[in-house]
Nucleic acid binder design. Structure first.
Lengths: 123, 123
DNA sequence: CGGGATCCGGATGGATACTG
DNA sequence: CAGTATCCATCCGGATCCCG
């Protein structure tokens, strides 16, 4: 009997399957910033419809990123696994801030402040 | 005259706009692993059609992640900006490896080896 | 408040065949 | 080798209305 071999799937691809969908990363970011409820996630996202948000939260729950609990209304929380995305989010933010060399999106002061905020919240 | 304010878009969202499309991350990973040519990117991706790959490479070029140059055939290369995604890729890989606590995808030896490889190539 | 049910249109992905 | 050109399927987002 030979040793069982699992086909080695690239871990990067597996990670991307968790966060590929359009709103997932933004919702996770919101949760790191303290948001918990359905209608909170919709704030500032005029294009996010109920259906899409609902599906999104469901998929995130199936993927083990969040939990859904009743607590005088329904609250969503990051799981251990969801929290483990902190460094991914941090590096995504740093990528943008570090490659915005022509200050297309931010001036130097913005960058400094944003780096500080993301570091405090995500690391 | 008041100070000009740019609307502050979340840097995480901007980063995601670069890598959201289905094959982008895998192509960038391939490039970190030394692949340069159209047909090399197709290896191991039976569902990646010519059209989709072509569009994908075009968009990545527009986004400043890669360059396209003729060199006895056409070669794609990561730009400085593209290379700056190294830590994002690394953290994506680590996320999967660190949260696979039930060894669903990898056994402990695989994990150790994969961590080593990604560290060498991406950091 | 936290969604579910429908419906629609555009974007995206994929297969196949062909080309300079 | 590095794509284009078609055609087709589908997914997905978004709008709207409805419900317990």
């Amino acid at each position: 009997m030979e040793k069982e071999e699992k086909a080695l799937i690239c871990p990067i691809e597996i990670a991307m399957e968790h966060i590929n969908r359009k709103w997932v990363i933004q919702i996770i970011r919101d949760m790191f910033f303290g948001k918990k409820r359905f209608n909170e996630f919709k704030e500032g996202k005029p294009n996010l419809s109920n259906k899409v948000l609902s599906n999104c939260l469901k998929e995130m729950e199936e993927n083990g990123l969040i939990t859904r609990k009743t607590n005088g209304g329904i609250e969503y929380k990051l799981t251990e696994k969801g929290l483990a995305l902190n460094k991914v989010l941090y590096e995504l933010a740093m990528f943008t801030l570090n490659t915005d060399i022509n200050n297309r999106y931010y001036d130097d002061e913005n960058k400094k402040e944003l780096k500080k905020v993301f570091k405090e919240i995500l690391l």
